[in-house]
Each structure stands twice: as C-alpha cells, then as structure tokens.
Design a protein around this nucleic acid. Structure first.
Length: 533
RNA sequence: GCGCCCAUCGUUCAACGGAUAGGACAUGGGAUUGCGGAUCCCAUAAUUGAGGUUCGAUUCCUCAUGGGCGCACCA
C-alpha cells in the first residue's frame, strides 16, 4: 500500500512530502487510513478528492487479489482501507507459526547498540515511590527495544564517589558529625549496631563510602528480588576515579581547549555550545564536580564502550541539568541523535485526596517497597507504566489499596486466564478438536467478532515498532487493555467450543492467537502471567 | 526574576496536526438454564481563557491564569 502511494508521488512531485498511514481510532474509517491526498493537494494544486481517487486506483493495481475488502475515499480527502477477512485470517496463521517471535524484528545497520540507564537512585537512602516510574519504564522499554531487535544493555549508575559532597555528608551523618540524612540511624543502624561501630572509626569520606556500599547492597537486593528488575550492570561512579577516566576526561577537555581557570576553579565553556552559562568541572578546593564525573561516565558510554545510542531516564528534578550534559557531548562531537534523555515527571503522592509531602524526617519516606507490599507488584507496575513519562500523575495510596482489586491489570490478567481456561477445557475433554495448525479452516472465522479480534491481534507488531521509535511504553499498556476488551467481548458473543468441529478447530486457533499475543504483550511489560485467579 | 514540564468528563489518565475527543473509577439502568460474572451491554458527562498559523488545532505559536520542578564550586 505504501509502495503504491510512494511510487505515485514520486511520479508526480519533485519535492519530498510528509504523509501518514495510520490506524484510525474510529473503526468506521477503516483498518488503515492515509492523509496523503490532503498533503499532496497544495503541491499539485489539485482537489484532494481527485488525487485520492487516483491513489486509490494505483493502490488497487498493485495490491494482491482480494487483499483489501474495500478502499473508500472520505471527505475532505482521506483514503480508508479495509483489509479483507482472508488477509486477516492469513495474518492469524502467521501468529500461530511465529508464536513468541510474532512482532519481533531485527534492526540492521546503525544505531542498534543501545545503553539504557535508569533508576540510578543515590545510595544514600531507600528507593522511594518516585523512583518507581523510571524503574518500570526503563525495564519495560529495555524489553521492548530488545524485542524490536536492538542490542540493549541496562545499567544503574551508583553515585558513590568518595570525593563527592553527598558521600562525605552521608559519612558525617554516620559518624555523628551531621544530620544531613536523619533517617540513617533508624533505617540502617537500629538493627545493625556493629555497622555503626565499624563506621565510627572511619573518616567522613570512608564512612560515607562504606555506608553507601551497605545501602546500595540493600537497594540492589530489593531491585532484584522485589522489583524483579535485572540490570546488566551496576556502574560505580567511584570506578571512574580508579580507572583514571575522570582524569582522562579532563585531559581531553583541556586538549580541545574547552576549559579555563577562574576564581581558583576549572570551568567548562558550556555557554559557547548553547548552555546558559559556563560550568565548573573542578572546584577551587580541587575536588571534581558531579558534572565532571558524569561527563567521564558518558565519554565511557560513547567513546570507550562505543554504544550507538545512550538513553537516560531521569526524574524531573534533573531536567535543568540535561542541557549541560548534552552540550558537553556536542562539544566532544557526539552526535545529538545518539543521546536521548527521557524526563519522567514526578509522581504526586496522595493519600485519600490529600497530598503527602515527602520529608526526610525518619519514618516519613514513602518507599517503593512499602507501596509494593500494599498493592502488589503487578498493580504498581501496571499503574506506573500506564502513563506517558511527561505527564504529572497522582498516586493515591489509599485508593490504590482500596481499589487494588479493581486495578485494570486484573482485567488483562483475567483475559489471559479465561483464554487459557478454554484451552485447558478442550484438552481435558479429550474432544475431537485438535490443537494443531494443520488443515485449519480459518475462513470460518468470519463473524464481526472474529474479524475484530483478529484485527486487534495484528496491531501488535505495529505497536511494538512504534514504541521502539517513540519510547511511549504506555501505548503497549493501552493495547493490552484493548486486546483484553476485544477478547472479553468476543467471549460474550461467540463460542470457541461448538457443535461444529471445523468451526471449533478454527476458534481454538483464534484463542491460541490471543494467548500468544497477550503473552508477548505482558512479557514485554513485565506483568505476571497467571494460570488462575 | 529566568528556564523546563503540565492543564481534557465528578475523579484519574488517553488521543504521530486529522474525521463523531477514548478508557478506567464514580453515578444510574440492564444481561441466569453451555467455554470462569474479576465478565458483558446501555446512559449521563470534558478540551482553563484570549488571540494566531492551517483545508483541518486537545495537539503548533503568542499572551494570560493555575499547578509541578529546576536555576550551586549538591547530586
């Protein structure tokens, strides 16, 4: 379809034009629609409806016999396409053959090696609810990108540099010289007096480093066992000092004449690359800033490990920092399209309609662990993944608990269980219906419910492909809900097990298709597949 | 003061610049003799305001209003 359209355009227009082929939200406009005639109208100085008709004829000429049910033209100039039942039935066959590979693709050529960094909570305290958003988003996005054919590594950056202010302050807190992190005693020393004793003998910097190590171990353990998120690597900031990469990074910047000294500090000429002001790399006391080590970290990502692309998921409180790093990488000739920062807006915590103000006073931290204990991992994960990263969302803890049984995640899981239940029933009945792809009479799947359900299944690869480009993971959550709805609807109106053996056989194939796609979807999202509920 | 993000049914979230703005929760009705009722069907209900660009604007631009977050030789 695209080919016919593009060929036609090439013949008639010299300049490039942008047009879309999309699946309309409203089913009355067909399975696919295009606005190409509208876009072409001005260039060709011709009425859109006339162009649309021309394209319709051209598409029909190259389409295989019976591929489309119909192609209609609608004012002001859309061309709407309906796939024939036969086309859809063939696609169902594809699903049954490809199974868990259905929707998978291979990215060839450039930009296929991707580093996805996310979560990266400071090792100065527990992981809180706000971190949850980036955590689930990163994990699901990694799954989706891998499925779409990218070679993805996931990484968690541990900010544990001995020389950093935060580690020193953490250390001071540990040895009783500060109360910068007032919850430390309650959370980490109360049940571990030995740790407190051990740290008490150390300098602030060493105590901070050791405590950060202890905290990070607890956090990593939580991530692995309770969040069920696996990282390929935990990359330690401190390691950049040990390896000499911080020094090397500094040398590189100096060599490129991107630095200067002023007020005893070393500055990076960020303003020259579009930043609002220059930035400090080395403080007047001689200590490197976070910016310098972070830059060394990104030099490591791009120049040492040679990732084609680095995607960072950050909380909204870091958005002001993003331009600095972007401009610095630009100065080092790292192409802009190789670096992507996804800003996840804050989650506003609400309890029974009232905002919960996060405070560092002890016992007042809304940890992600507490939330998961209250509402369950699947429900929490589904909630966070359901919204686009840019929106400011409210999380009502009270409501989440009260309504945990009404969480939409169960709607999806129930669809899966229901589907599975039918297949088990057939198996147990030792019926004559066989679970096989041989001699299927898929043309029997011709009721509106059959067609609608198959069509929904065939959207899966398109959704995955879109997300691999726009990173809008919430679209897959919405798809999971829509597919489930379609299945529940189908279930009410049609039967899988009927008196007609051939029809039953075909419907069984359809149920298998639903199971396959639903499984693929939930696995990408990281939502559990339940056998029964 | 400057910058980034957000504003959509009662509530909470969707909608690559496309056609009749979609779902969930809440509210009000309805669905029993067959595959699991954690389901299905129906109804009520929304684009913050004022301009602009466009064949077409919830979407882009300007201003206003109201929120979130930044603006360190913290991370």
């Amino acid at each position: 379809m695209l080919k016919a359209i593009i060929d036609l355009i090439k013949k008639s227009v010299k300049s490039d034009i942008n047009f879309d082929v999309f699946a309309p939200e409203n089913a009355v406009f067909g399975h696919y629609s295009t606005n190409v005639a509208l876009r072409l109208a001005k260039i060709r100085k011709q009425p859109p409806l006339e162009i649309a008709e021309e394209i319709r004829v051209a598409v029909q000429a190259v389409a295989p016999q019976g591929f489309f049910e119909k192609i209609e033209i609608a004012a002001p100039g859309f061309i709407n396409f309906w796939l024939s039942p036969q086309t859809l039935q063939n696609e169902l066959k594809e699903i049954l053959i490809k199974k868990e590979r259905y929707g998978q693709s291979n990215v060839k050529g450039q930009m296929s090696k991707v580093l996805l960094e996310f979560l990266s909570a400071n090792p100065t305290g527990p992981i809180h609810i706000g971190n949850g958003r980036g955590a689930f988003l990163g994990d699901a996005l990694a799954n989706i990108l891998r499925f779409a054919g990218y070679a993805v590594k996931t990484e968690y950056y541990v900010n544990n540099a001995r020389v950093s202010e935060q580690i020193k302050n953490l250390g001071k807190t540990a040895i009783g010289e500060s109360d910068a992190y007032p919850y430390v005693g309650e959370l980490y020393f109360k049940k571990n007096q030995a740790l407190k004793k051990r740290l008490g003998k150390l300098s602030a910097s060493e105590a901070g480093y050791a405590l950060a190590d202890h905290i990070q171990k607890l956090n990593s353990d939580f991530i692995k066992k309770k969040l069920k998120i696996k990282f390929n690597d935990f990359f330690e900031e401190e390691s950049l000092f040990k390896s000499g990469e911080v020094e090397a990074g500094l040398k590189l910047l100096k060599k490129k004449k991107l630095t200067y000294e002023q007020d005893g500090a070393l500055w990076f000429k960020a303003a020259g690359f579009g930043d609002s002001e220059d930035r400090v790399l080395v403080r007047s006391g001689g200590a490197p800033t976070y910016f310098l080590t972070d830059l060394a970290y990104h030099i490591n990502k791009f120049l040492k490990r040679k990732f084609d692309k680095a995607i960072n998921i950050w909380g909204a409180d870091h958005h002001g920092y993003a331009p600095r790093l972007k401009f610095a990488l630009k100065a080092l000739a790292v192409k802009e399209e190789r670096f992507e920062i996804i800003i996840a807006q804050f989650v506003r915590l609400v309890r029974g309609g009232k905002e919960v103000k996060m405070s560092k006073r002890k016992g007042d931290i809304e940890t992600l662990e507490k939330l998961i204990d209250e509402v369950g991992l699947d429900a929490a994960r589904f909630f966070f993944l359901a919204h686009t990263a840019g929106s400011h969302i409210d999380f009502d803890i009270k409501l989440a608990r009260e309504r945990s049984l009404k969480n939409p995640v169960y709607y999806v899981q129930y669809a899966y269980v229901r589907c599975l239940s039918i297949l088990h029933k057939i198996k147990n009945q030792k019926s004559k219906i066989k679970n096989t792809n041989q001699n299927l009479k898929l043309k029997l799947l011709n009721t509106p419910e059959d067609i609608k359900l198959i069509r929904e299944l065939t959207r899966f690869p398109e959704i995955v492909e879109d997300i691999s480009k726009n990173y809008q993971v919430h679209n897959l959550v919405r798809y999971a809900l829509e597919l489930s709805r379609n299945f529940h609807n189908f279930y009410e109106k049609e039967r899988v097990i009927t008196d007609n053996k051939d029809l039953s056989q075909s419907r069984l194939a359809l149920a298998n298709g639903v199971l396959i796609v639903l499984k693929n979807t939930l696995e990408l999202l990281g939502i559990s597949l339940l056998e029964k509920m």
